[in-house]
Write a protein that binds this DNA or RNA. Structure first.
Length: 253
RNA sequence: UACUACACUUGUUCCC
């Protein structure tokens, strides 16, 4: 199976989807006469990945491959969903990815947290915040999928990049209400947000709260603070953190 | 099948 995936993969990279499907069908026939071989999921996934590249407005190519899979006894699982979502997003078909994700969730399998968060990040980069929030609400109410701490970090980073620290802090409140505790990633992200706004006192407040909560600063924390404070002209404080960093056993990189 | 090595999937700094 590994071998046939490789063959198909190489072939798919230099040919059209239909030619790849022909080869796939040829393989199916061959394997029917050789019981020691089987068509596995990864062989099907090669085709699926290929089918995302071609611009078909109604996802017909993707559906063609999915039907082929099912008729060969391989039912789509969360790995299948992952391949399709990444394939579509890699050619900027984020809306199609969302549609397919919902369809597959209903008919076959829900996404895992990796796929879900990957898609949330793609949406953040390319769509409005309200679009992202409706996607999250939709997934929660219709599919029982809730955001996790990684999701919140993605959202907080996104709003920080739009300099909307008020919304970032609101999200921290929401995340706590959901029973999560901010970790290094969340604290580092927020400090970065305040750094780019040159809000030095808020940076320090967050830094102190992080330590109070027992979350240890790491290399990323120090890099964020040293770069961020230097850029906003607070070189003295930045230098202080460089000393703290070395004193706590980190090596400046 | 086991072991080992290598590679591999979602979030923060720097690099790009």
């Amino acid at each position: 199976p590994r071998f046939q995936s490789s063959i198909l993969q190489s072939y798919a990279s230099i040919s059209t989807l239909d030619d790849s499907i022909s080869l796939f069908n040829h393989m199916v026939k061959r394997f029917q006469t050789h019981p020691s071989f089987s068509l596995d999921r990864s062989t099907c996934h090669v085709l699926l990945s290929k089918s995302c590249d071609s611009p078909d407005p109604d996802l017909s190519h993707v559906h063609k491959v999915l039907n082929l899979m099912v008729s060969n006894g391989v039912s789509p699982n969360s790995g299948t969903v992952d391949i399709a979502v990444r394939g579509l997003c890699s050619v900027d078909r984020v809306d199609d990815a969302v549609l397919l994700l919902k369809e597959l969730s209903l008919k076959h399998s829900k996404p895992d947290t990796y796929t879900y968060n990957f898609l949330v990040k793609c949406l953040c980069k390319t769509r409005s915040l309200s679009t992202v929030y409706s996607f999250i609400d939709d997934m929660r109410s219709n599919f029982g999928l809730s955001p996790d701490l990684v999701t919140y970090t993605i959202l907080i980073d996104n709003v920080c990049n739009s300099k909307n620290l008020r919304e970032a802090m609101r999200l921290v409140g929401v995340l706590k209400d959901c029973g999560f505790k901010p970790d290094r990633f969340v604290y580092n992200t927020i400090m970065k947000g305040y750094c780019v706004l040159s809000r030095g006192s808020e940076v320090m407040e967050v830094y102190n709260r992080m330590k109070e909560e027992g979350v240890e600063p790491d290399l990323v924390t120090y890099n964020t603070l040293i770069f961020g404070l230097s850029k906003s002209g607070r070189v003295k404080e930045a230098k202080k953190f460089l000393r703290v960093m070395v004193a706590s056993g980190h090596v400046p990189d």
